[in-house]
Design a protein around this nucleic acid. Structure first.
Lengths: 105, 105
DNA sequence: GTAACGTACAACCAAATGGTTGTACAAAAT
DNA sequence: ATTTTGTACAACCATTTGGTTGTACGTTAC
């Protein structure tokens, strides 16, 4: 996973509408227009949000007839979650070293 | 935690330099100019990145003499991590319901 | 007291973002 | 066959972003 992949994942999550889309499609797959119907903005705007999430690989699309069905991608979400946990781990490790230092006198 | 708080946290994390700053300050607290020295960009640019992280509450600053010492804020990181885990939970719950549906015939 | 250091902030710039409307086209329904 | 539906995409716009340089100011060192 390159830096720019991670950039795009967090960027995709840095918007309330997009996080809400993720919530919806994790709960149940649905078409782009189902999603568009849920927000007070143009279809094109929602479609752009979907495209951002798709580029970030947080969702995938699957054509069904004339509809495009949007699914959540659990794998990418897990990667993002693990990344944040890695920062906690860095902190924990440093804390341990701090502890070493404090107890070494 | 408001939506815009979450927006600012993920936005702050959506940049390689800023994630690197988080890594550094989680490992060891350091001054703004220590950080600035580590990147091939102006002091002002690094200072802006630090300001973005500070607004997102991912770091805090603490004046020590003429230096400004930057610390990582584990708490905010944990909140972000838990948020991502919540999406996984939504997915898991839906999966369970799927399972219910598949076994109910 | 003066010089150097660490920081903050304003002004500026190019590029990206998040929204809009309009057009185009394939699939489905009539 | 025609209309409606679902989607994609371009063009446009205002705002934000991520960088720059320059200025200012308090703190430390000489």
């Amino acid at each position: 996973m390159s830096d720019s992949d991670v950039d795009s994942i967090f960027h995709a999550l840095a918007d309330t509408t997009r996080r809400d889309i993720v919530t919806r499609v994790m709960a149940r797959e649905q078409s782009v227009s189902d999603l568009a119907g849920a927000y007070a903005m143009s279809f094109a705007a929602v479609q752009k949000h979907v495209a951002v999430l798709e580029r970030a690989m947080l969702i995938t699309k699957d054509r069904r007839g004339r509809e495009q069905i949007v699914h959540g991608d659990l794998n990418t979400l897990r990667k993002a979650a693990r990344l944040l946990e890695a920062y906690e781990e860095i902190w924990r490790t440093r804390a341990d070293r701090m502890d070493d230092i404090l107890t070494e006198d």
